[in-house]
């Protein structure tokens, strides 16, 4: 029993010493320290300004996921993070006062992207969020985690600036998806704007459904 416990502890210690690609690495934007810098390393961060607050990835491992809907050939891109509250502080992406928030964008694709290895087909693509074939959903802790569609989108775009097929030691490991986003919408009579949005994430088999 003692030996098993020691072996388990050693395994955990070794695992903790591995530099995992799924870790979130926050490099602050020099122009706004509350936002992560736009990078193309797969640092698993995202962030956007939001009318006096921020929508951030807040230290999650792999804060984004993607899902292919074969029935209508659409791809679902979800960013899971949090919205900063009043009197918040941000330390390397860790937020002291926050509410859970996620943003989901579902858009049609010309090509079949049914696994993470085909994400390179999005390279350089820009999605107009005002297009009627595009759906945008928001989930907020303050709204009891209810996922609500945004129907009145005044402007917005999701831009996949660069997709990289990442090979580590000769083996295909993940797709690095980097880009920008912004959106202006009206919901329940309230105008909301997300601007200066950026994301840099690694998508592997575990985060593509």
């Amino acid at each position: 029993m003692k030996k098993t416990l020691i072996l388990c502890m050693a395994a955990c210690l070794f695992a903790a010493c591995e530099d995992n690609l799924e870790r979130s690495i926050w490099i602050s934007d020099p122009d706004d320290f509350n936002l992560p810098k736009y990078t193309e390393w797969g640092y698993n961060t995202f962030g956007a300004k939001m009318d006096g607050s921020y929508f951030l990835s807040c230290w999650r491992e792999n804060p984004c996921s993607m899902e292919w809907h074969a029935n209508d050939s659409t791809l679902e891109f979800t960013m899971n993070g949090c919205q900063t509250l009043n009197d918040y502080m941000v330390f390397d992406g860790y937020i002291t006062k926050k509410d859970y928030m996620s943003l989901t964008i579902i858009f049609p694709c010309d090509s079949v992207i049914d696994n993470y290895k085909k994400l390179y087909l999005l390279d350089g693509k820009t999605i107009d969020l005002t297009d009627t074939t595009v759906k945008v959903l928001v989930t907020l802790e303050s709204h009891n985690y209810w996922t609500e569609p945004i129907t009145d989108i005044r402007s917005g775009e999701l831009c996949f600036k660069r997709i990289q097929n990442l090979y580590v030691d000769g083996k295909f490991e993940e797709s690095i998806v980097s880009g920008t986003f912004d959106i202006r919408y009206v919901k329940d009579g309230e105008k909301t704007r997300m601007s200066d949005g950026r994301f840099d994430i690694g998508i592997n088999q575990s985060f593509f459904w």
């Binding site: 010493c17 591995e18 530099d19 090979y167």
Partner: peptide, 22 residues
């Protein structure tokens, strides 16, 4: 070296492909 048992070195970029080594 790094604090972890290895670090990632970007060896090259060829078009859409990027190659790291541990």
């Amino acid at each position: 070296n790094s604090d972890y048992s290895f670090f990632y070195f970007k060896a090259k970029e060829e078009g859409l492909n990027t190659y790291y080594f541990r």
